[in-house]
Every structure is written in C-alpha cells, then in structure tokens.
Design a protein around this nucleic acid. Sequence first.
DNA 1: ACATTTTTGTAACCAAGGTTACACATTTAG
DNA 2: CTAAATGTGTAACCTTGGTTACAAAAATGT
Lengths: 212, 212
Amino acid sequence: MKDILTATYGHLFENALIEEIAENGSYKKVPSGTKLIEIGSYIKGMPLLLSGAIKVLREDDDGHELLLYYLEQGETCSMTMSCCMGMTKSEIRAIAENETELIMIPIRKMEDWTAKYKSWRNFVFESYHTRLNEMLHTLDSIAFNNMDQRLLEYLKEKVRINGSRFVENTHQEIAYELNSSRVVISRLLKKIENKGGIELHRNYIKIINLDI
Amino acid sequence: MKDILTATYGHLFENALIEEIAENGSYKKVPSGTKLIEIGSYIKGMPLLLSGAIKVLREDDDGHELLLYYLEQGETCSMTMSCCMGMTKSEIRAIAENETELIMIPIRKMEDWTAKYKSWRNFVFESYHTRLNEMLHTLDSIAFNNMDQRLLEYLKEKVRINGSRFVENTHQEIAYELNSSRVVISRLLKKIENKGGIELHRNYIKIINLDI
DNA sequence: ACATTTTTGTAACCAAGGTTACACATTTAG
DNA sequence: CTAAATGTGTAACCTTGGTTACAAAAATGT
C-alpha cells in the first residue's frame, strides 16, 4: 500500500506521514456507481482518492438532485472532513463515477496529523480551497448560465473525467444531475446534435466537438 | 484592544493567542457601504469581525451580481483565508453591510498560529465548515427555489442582520443582489404587500410579517 | 415469438421571470 | 423655482424551460 500511496501523494506528504497513512488507512476498490456517502448519514472516515472519480451530489427535500462537483485522484472530500470535525450528518451524497481506488482514513487520526505534519495541514487547507472554488463555479453556472450552456459544460466535464468521447448516460440521468427534466434535456441535446456537436444514440452520446 | 477581543473571542482562543492577535492585528472601524475586498485584488490580511456585518458578493464577467452570504460577529472570511494561502486573487467582493468593527491579521502570522494553537486550527476549520454550508444553502436557494421564495428569504435575512424591521434598499439594489431585474422585484414585492407581509415606501420597506 | 419495460423524439401547452416602454411621484441640483 | 435625476407602478410582450401526452424504437424477460 505504501507504494501506491507514494505514487499519488509522495510529492505532497513527507515519508513519516505516508507511513502513518499506510498503517492506519484501509485500501478500497469500488466499482462505478457505488454509493459512498448518503445524505443524513454520519461519516466514518475520510477518503483519499488514488484513482477514478467520485461525483458529489446535493438533494433538496422534494428529491430534486444537483451535481456539485467531482473528486479526482489526489483529492479528498472537504465536506466529509468538515462533517467529521463537527460530528454532524452529511449534507451531500457521494457516488463513484467510475471504478475508484481510495484509502479510508479514520477520523481520529486527523487531528493528530494536523498538529504534527505541516504537509497535512497544507493538504487540508488546499482541499478546502479547491472545494470552495468548485462550489463557486457550480454556483456561477446555475446563477448566470442557462440550461444549454450548463449542458455543454456538463458534457465537457464528463469527457474530461471519464477520459472518453462516449458519455454513457440516459437523458433522464443527465436531467437528474442538472435538476432539469428529461424532455428539456432531450430537446437541448437534439439542438447540439443538429449543430454537429454530438451524435445521439440509445444509452450513450458520442462527443464530436463541444466548442460550438 | 485586548478587552474587546476577549469579549468576542475569549471563549474560543486561549489567552496567549489573544495576546498575539492583539499585538499583530490592527483595529478598524468602517462605515456601512465600505468596500473591503474587490474581485481580482490580492488580499493583504484576514479580518476577524468584532461587530457589524459584511456581505460577500459574487459577480460574473458581464457584471451580474449575486449575494453569497453575510459574515457576522465572531466570524472570518474563509474565502480570504483560502486566497491568502494560495496567494491567488480574490474571487469575491466584500462590502460592509452596516458599521463594522474588525481586526485585520497579517497573513504571515496565520501559519505560525496554525502550527502553534489548537484553538486557532479549530477556529479555521470551523469557519471553513460554516462557509461551505452557507454556500450550500445559497446554492439550494438558487437551484431549488423560485424568485418569490428567494425574495422572502432575502428580506428575512436583512431583518436579522440589521436588527431592524426597516429594510433600507431600493428595488434596484435588491434586484442586483438576487441577480434579477428591478421590474420583477417590484412586481413580487407588490404581491407580498398585497398579502400584508410588508409596506412599500420610497427607499425603504417596512416589514410586517414574512411568514405568509 | 410475444409482451413488457426502457429510452428517445416531438408536439402542444403553461408558467416564471426577463425586457421594453411609459407614466408619475419624489428628491436633488442648479 | 425649474429642470434633471431617481425610484416606483404597471402593462404588454418574449424567452426559457417545465409539463403532459403520445408514438415509436430498442432492449429485456418469459
């Protein structure tokens, strides 16, 4: 486990910390679609991502969903961290976007390390920083863009995250994540197809060129 | 300065830290409307709020504004902190909502204290936590509520923050902060007035009862 | 092979909220 | 005191995106 940790976090953490993580963390490999955190649940540990990606979603009382952002290799979930410290319930849902490897760290170790390792403090601050900025970006997108722009952004992000020009989602799934309705998404996708940006198929979309 | 600091932060910070803050921080009292941080500017220091309130705003490239949240007594600006660490430009604008007293802390001290004082670390984490949750709340509001609900929330928050049943804003100002248009806000305000929730006047709104 | 479920396409309609335009009242400046 | 600027009220209209309804294609189960 030390080797795989060093590969992703070697340039961030000093050796002693890597050792401690390897001792205390538990390695997990989960398939795409695994629900890692549910809204309202208490958090047991904090994930360090080794490979893959995790999507973080928000849901309101009426079950309306909204995709917040993705976590990728070398990142951690600040929301989780934040919940751990306050011992509060999770405000978000986390689902593996594709096959994901991660190391779960028990919360009790975190305070230790924050006092002990400067590199750990920097990592924690850094991830709060990135997360706040991601949230700002999501907020911008909802507040200032209309649905076709949001849809384009969504598709671009999917391509980037999954490293594939084939977005394997139904229109309904996309509608959920953008908090819209299937009919609207189908309509807008068709418009993008007509402009030559994508090719629509059952259960997947082939991306041609989204800069249109 | 130590006394006023102890009044607000005494229950959070140990004495030694209070002393250090008193030594290194500079006290400021700013009138309502003072611009404390501008988008794109670099941050010189981190504010600790003693009294009053600061509103934090986001703006897109076309000048559309959006109110994110308020900072109150005993709080600090995580965005600022976050920017300081990364030495990046500010993503937000901060304006004093009313007369505000604060202590400005030079950034260079922060890393010291993070290593040295557990109470400081807790404070910093705690404020990241609150800020992330505020952001989530703002996002919920935009994504899941429509304008009349957002307007009601806005008015309630104003009453709470300013401790007055008189909201001293023009419809145009409200429209800016909600990223809407004056006509729409006037329309919705009139609807609330007709239901007996408020009384409309030039330059101010008298709040009667917003739970309607 | 046939029935059922899932997914997509499309039309018709609706509601929220943004836009333009203009009237009128109040305040401020000269 | 008069002219200009500012703030509000309201109507008419438009755009975006949400809703309902239905058809048809593709996949799946039995």
